[in-house]
Amino acid sequence: MAVCGDIWRAGERLRKGVMANLAGTGLDFACFDVVLTLRRQGRGGALSPSALAKEMMLSTSAMTSRLDRLEKLGLITRETDPADRRGLKVALTDAGFAKADEIVVSHVSTEERLLNRLSAKERDQLRSLLRKIGE
């Protein structure tokens, strides 16, 4: 129980730190995650909603609501897939790229601040141990 309690408390501390960093950006963590996933595709890159959901390990219905919010904010576009008229491709707009680039700097800084007590070796060890739980 103590190990699980420590993991829960550490996870909650990390979650609160990331949420505090996102405050005022207009994005919740769910939308932030979509924006960063699309940002990794690069300019001109796009994913279908189902591929995006699969990459993020979400249901397609959860993805649809996130995409609706991001489209209303002008951060993404949904366009017909040129290879399949029935399909869609999701891509970041210029505003979406700017938002991703703006937030990722403070996000990485926040994560570093939250993990700064761990050495590089300890971080590697922690990742290895957590992967064993997640398998």
Rank of each mutant, 00 (worst) to 15 (best):
M1N: 08
A2P: 01
C4I: 13
C4S: 10
I7E: 05
R9K: 07
G11A: 05
E12G: 02
L14V: 10
L14M: 11
K16E: 10
K16M: 05
G17D: 08
V18A: 05
L22A: 12
G24I: 07
G24T: 08
G26E: 12
D28L: 12
F29N: 05
F29A: 15
C31M: 10
C31S: 15
F32I: 04
V34E: 04
V35N: 08
V35Q: 04
V35Y: 02
T37E: 04
T37A: 14
L38T: 06
R40E: 14
G42A: 13
G42W: 09
G44N: 11
A46E: 02
S48C: 04
S50N: 08
A51V: 04
A51W: 00
L52D: 07
A53K: 02
A53Y: 02
K54T: 13
K54N: 13
E55H: 14
M56T: 00
M56W: 02
S59D: 04
S59I: 00
T60W: 03
T60Y: 02
S61L: 06
A62E: 04
S65H: 04
S65R: 08
R66C: 04
D68G: 03
D68V: 13
R69P: 00
L70Q: 03
E71S: 09
K72F: 02
G74P: 01
L75V: 11
I76V: 11
I76S: 00
R78V: 03
R78M: 05
E79T: 14
E79M: 11
D81H: 10
P82H: 08
A83P: 08
A83K: 15
R86I: 03
R86Y: 10
R86T: 12
R86K: 14
L88T: 14
K89W: 13
V90S: 13
A91N: 06
A91P: 02
T93G: 01
T93R: 07
G96I: 02
A98N: 06
A100W: 15
I103S: 12
I103L: 12
V105H: 07
H107S: 04
V108Q: 06
S109R: 13
E111R: 12
N116Y: 13
S119K: 04
A120T: 06
A120R: 09
K121C: 01
K121R: 11
R123G: 06
R123D: 01
D124K: 06
Q125H: 10
Q125G: 02
R127D: 09
S128C: 07
S128E: 14
S128L: 06
L130P: 02
E135Q: 00
